[in-house]
Simulated assay, not measured.
Amino acid sequence: MTTTTPNYIVTTGDFIAEWMEDEGINAAELARRLDVTRKHVSELLSGKAPLSHPLALALERVTGVPARIWNQYESGYRSDLARVQETRELEAQYEQAKAFPLSYLRKWGYVTASARERADTVRQLLGVLGVASLSAFETTWAEGSVAYRRAAVGREHAPAIATWLALAERHHDELNELPAFDRSALETQLPGLRALTSGEVLEAIDDAVERLREVGIVLCFIPAVPGLGIHGATRWLNGRPIIQLSLRGKTDDQVWFTLFHELGHVVLHGGKELYLNGDLTRAEEEADAFASNVLIPPQFVPRLPRTRDIAGVLALAKELGTAPSIVLGRAQRETGDYAWGHSLKRKIEFRTATPAS
């Protein structure tokens, strides 16, 4: 939500001066009545001197206006001063903020301020990142105690990666409502999760979210940042895994494979690491193998079609209880022939501007 800062500030002294005018009292007389110096009254009227609580009580006795009202005037004035100063500081950070994917954040409604509203743009970006300033972002993500954050900012496209990861952290409040992570329960759930792939895609995804919650895993979907090239990520927060998928590719076989890939990290690796789908590491290779073997167990691999055999894909998918697109995708990878069977793949689109888990 965009906020508007007024271009003028009403000081507590303005309200005092208004009372003085109504009563026909000058500054010298008010100083005598308050038992303070004329200089203090002058600074109070100009807003230079703060209104103390004892002086608010004295004003109550002199003016008949309750001290709480004078304190409210003072609090509002000081708040306005701070807001004006904050606006200047936020505007000064705008050039630095442009390193982050602002157009992406606007597209999905995470930032509603326009490019002309520089202070509000930076303010909303900081809200996404969960920091008070961009210098605080640098120290929090590069030097803080959370290992996966440090790993994120050490990469190419660090601002985009950090933004994408930070959006998923909005789900961290749910962690308190989740049971402790249960690895054996997750492994028991894997066949049922695989069976979900054959159902209606969006309903199956919702079901997967709930099933994973039961074993202490947060699964959320955050739109892909253009140019980032990341399908999914896994890391641990407060002892529980958070898996986020980008729906990059937007077909059901890719989304399901990425989910089981990330679950491979949860089962095989764990710990405090950040796993980004697409990295060229041994852990990524192991997660790929895990996903491949769970979705299509090794004993079924020799039965994958080696030609453009739609009927063979459908038959094997039915026997496995999986989506035909998953069998097709595996057959395509095995043969290197990707130019067929596209009608078996179902497209997935985000349903809301700010998707939630």
Rank of each mutant, 00 (worst) to 15 (best):
Y8A: 11
A151T: 05
G76Y: 09
I16S: 09
A113S: 11
E143W: 05
E286C: 10
I222H: 02
V225C: 02
L34E: 09
T354I: 03
A315S: 13
T354Q: 08
H261I: 07
T307L: 15
A115D: 13
R330F: 13
A92H: 14
W19A: 03
S42N: 08
R116H: 13
A323V: 15
V36E: 08
S198N: 13
K250A: 15
A289P: 00
L276K: 01
D253F: 08
D253G: 12
W164Q: 07
A353H: 04
L90D: 04
G76R: 05
A67P: 03
L268T: 06
A58E: 07
L134T: 07
I296F: 11
F221H: 06
G64C: 00
F181E: 07
A27S: 13
E60L: 01
G199Y: 02
Q72E: 11
A168P: 00
G336L: 12
F100W: 08
R88G: 13
D35V: 04
G321M: 02
L45W: 14
T354C: 05
G249M: 14
L274N: 08
F181P: 04
P179S: 05
I16C: 07
L126V: 03
V36H: 06
S103C: 08
W70G: 02
E143F: 07
R155Q: 13
T354Y: 01
L51R: 01
S52R: 04
L102M: 11
L178I: 03
T307I: 12
R33W: 00
H265V: 12
A136T: 11
L57G: 06
F257H: 10
P305E: 14
V111I: 14
L59H: 00
A289Y: 00
G109M: 07
L190Y: 15
T322A: 15
M1D: 14
E214W: 09
S135A: 11
T139E: 12
R306M: 08
K345D: 02
L45Q: 10
R78N: 01
A289M: 06
E21F: 10
H172G: 00
P66T: 13
K107E: 15
S357K: 15
R33C: 03
A99K: 13
S292M: 11
P179M: 04
T37A: 09
I25V: 14
A28N: 06
A204N: 04
A162P: 01
